[in-house]
Design a protein around this nucleic acid. Structure first.
Lengths: 302, 302
DNA sequence: CTGATTCTCTGACTATAGTCAGAGAATGGA
DNA sequence: TCCATTCTCTGACTATAGTCAGAGAATCAG
């Protein structure tokens, strides 16, 4: 498997390298070209460019200068915050960016051209599959303090989604939601998944002494569903629970969350009688953790 | 489709970029690291390194110097040709290269680690498919003079393969093989396929005035079979024939070449009575070229 | 044997892609 | 209000990745 991945990398970088060359070849070096592209069709704040391209502030400043000197970019202070500056593409800048776009399209087309229709379809399908799985593999899962911005973001998104999907709406105050302290060791823990530093999902555990542990707050960002991330979070939560001496895991969920319900079933949870009076719950599940739950962690090492 | 390819490129370069970083991070810049790698486990001629890595001779010379200064490489004149020098890895060089290898393996493993077994299998399968098709798409097909080294290489390989596969062996002198002049316009033409500048296959046409054109010398390098290259050569030959006013194409072939025979059938060739006394032929095929044969060229533009 | 060519190397440049320290303006929190 | 922080910019460097012209040795083709 490792050999196949390395061979893939070799082949793909050769072929895909041509795409960077297309960005080049336009008298402009790669740095300014990438920047011009990243500013986007309209504008971007300089600080966001800095984080997105991971550039030194001095270097970025100079790159922007070279673009403004060429008349491709306008740099204006942000209204809201006088420290922040926003880069706007001028009409010449937009034309230049469109040209880069066109060139990249040409390279992509030149990859398809020599292939038969059937081969093209297969290539595109396989590329989509590789991409999906590489994204899935780029997601990192780790324990996170509930006070961390990522954790707060996930909580907000989770509640908002419940409010939208439950027939009855959702009001956190009416539910047995876990408080911050309850998701911090030793009372519990929170896992947050991130993709390129952005929050992508979460899942939490509450420990109840010798009694069954409780799964809470399983959520995956909508645009990352179908990548097996929910299952990965679940597996990792089970491993963490087992590592904390939990023998049985429980959870309660709402009938509107159909994918979640079927994921729990597929993962070996069996429906049990209500063990709580959570008003928003329709299903109560339970699973006895086996000996393998403690191993097979899919969490990235630190 | 173009959008999918570009999106794929974006995702893959991010993830695959990590592989170059693995080559880096070892206190050594990418240039020397790639060179150390490319020398291979044992040795390489400097001139072959130059073409393989596409480096300026002065630049390469300096890179090699830095490696010899570090005691990783030995540079010795070639026995056969005093101008050529050969780069040998010292034992320290081999150790260093093994370390690079290990790091690249680690990166590959880190891509697999977060995935489930099923996802891993799917990723590796899809990567193999993408790679196969990218290789297929990287093959270039073009008209070639029969005297060109690529053409000669293909001719040799073709005859050698016939000799090996025919029950009776193969002796060019006993066969109606086409001479150089017969494969040059206006008497005929030769297409040669190349991959990264190496010959990868061929196919030829002979024109017979208003009579049927003749397909000759269809051959694909063994390690590139199954990529649709034979079909691509055939399609292109038909287009060239049609462009030269040919209405009907004929060919003769040997029963040992089973894949070829079924390719001809699949491409619309029907078996006809022998139209020649070619001693090595068992099957004679013919196809009337339709109006679409002249279009849909899969040849790369110059 | 000779002239053209091939191969490698050196010297002398240039371009690209950064890094680092610190200054100055704007902002936010106590 | 004041102090710490954020954001951008400038100046002064460094490292990497080349490019180009030409010299000298070896080889090849006629």
């Amino acid at each position: 498997m490792v050999g196949q991945i390395r061979s893939f990398n070799r082949t793909v970088t050769q072929r895909v390298g041509a795409l960077s060359d297309a960005f080049l070849g336009r008298d402009r070096p790669l740095g300014p070209a990438r920047l011009l592209w990243e500013i986007g069709p309209d504008s971007s704040e300089v600080r966001s460019l800095r984080t997105r391209l991971d550039l030194d502030s001095g270097y970025l400043s100079r790159l922007l200068r070279s673009l403004t000197d060429e008349g491709l970019v306008d740099l204006r202070p942000s209204r809201a915050d006088g420290r922040v500056r926003t880069a706007y593409l001028t009409s010449r800048g937009r034309a230049e960016r469109a040209e880069l776009d066109r060139r990249a399209d040409d390279v992509a087309r030149s990859i398809l051209r020599p292939l038969s229709d059937r081969q093209r379809a297969r290539l595109v399908t396989a590329m989509a599959e590789v991409e999906r799985l590489l994204v899935a593999s780029a997601v990192q899962v780790g324990v996170c303090d509930p006070g961390h911005p990522h954790a707060r973001f996930c909580e907000q998104a989770y509640f908002a989604e419940l409010a939208q999907r439950f027939d009855t709406g959702f009001e956190p105050a009416h539910s047995h939601t876990a408080s911050t302290g309850e998701l911090t060791p030793p009372a519990g823990l929170l896992l947050v998944a991130t993709l390129h530093g952005e929050p992508a999902g979460c899942g939490a555990l509450r420990f109840h002494g010798d009694g069954p542990g409780e799964l809470k707050r399983m959520w995956v960002a909508p645009d990352l569903r179908g990548l097996g991330l929910g299952r990965r979070l679940l597996t990792e939560l089970e491993a963490q629970a087992a590592a904390n001496g939990v023998r049985t895991l429980r959870l309660e969920t709402n009938r509107s969350l159909a994918e979640a319900v079927s994921m729990y079933r597929a993962a070996g949870y069996r429906e049990v009688d209500p063990f709580s009076d959570e008003p928003y719950a329709h299903h109560w599940f339970e699973k006895t953790l086996g000996p393998d739950s403690a191993s097979g962690s899919m969490v990235d090492p630190p």
